[in-house]
Design a protein around this nucleic acid. Structure first.
Lengths: 106, 106
DNA sequence: TCGATGTGCAACACGATTGTTGCACACAGC
DNA sequence: GCTGTGTGCAACAATCGTGTTGCACATCGA
């Protein structure tokens, strides 16, 4: 149960401000890379790479619509990540509290 | 309610495998940078910087014990981050579902 | 057919990260 | 006082990440 696999990649993806801008924009409705580029202060190519990162770790989904590629947020991926983090926090808290109890018993 | 402040930094901190090793080790009990360096395959200085990153976003706490500095995991910080992510995921899901309903009504 | 729009790929610049080594300093214990 | 251990700081190398420009190609629509 060590690294919980993809959680590191998800966190790395969420560790960039521009990707948060992309995600929050997609949270209000699907859009293509070109569309996003008109609304955010970065070029389409930069956004395309951010979208690739987000898609690689499952935070967004691609969907071809004619000649354009539309991206949508995958809320469940974020929910899963949140649950994993919460479970780890709880486990750590329990272990440390047990240590504290042991120390105080002597 | 845009970037939720420190969540980006927390995620960035969690986006590095070595920092996960440090966190998981600290999850089994507090330790100093030198101690961690003997258990992980990186130098003390590298670990010290990772600990600084983790401390800056509240994921670990420093505590001086004599001449050494002990670090402990702060589970509540991780829990807070998890709750924020979960809340965002839920908000996005709700908004997208409302969009879907609107589209299907016409 | 032709132009406009959307995408894909490559090269490049630049700063940030990550890791190292080396040295200086503080302090606990002999 | 001296040695060992823990910390702090600085310099350095190498890689990665982010963003840019430029160009080629596909496709929708007039």
């Amino acid at each position: 149960m060590s690294p919980a696999a993809g959680i590191v990649d998800v966190c790395a993806a969420l560790g960039d401000p521009t990707r948060w801008q992309v995600l929050e924009r997609l949270g209000s409705g699907p859009a293509s890379a070109s569309r996003l580029a008109t609304e955010l202060p970065v070029t389409r190519q930069a956004i395309a790479r951010h979208l690739e990162v987000l898609a690689d770790c499952g935070l967004v989904e691609r969907e071809r619509v004619g000649r354009e590629v539309r991206y949508r947020v995958v809320g469940s991926a974020l929910t899963t990540a949140a649950r994993r983090l919460d479970a780890m926090a709880e486990a750590w808290d329990r272990r440390l509290e047990r240590l504290r109890d042991l120390a105080e018993r002597e």
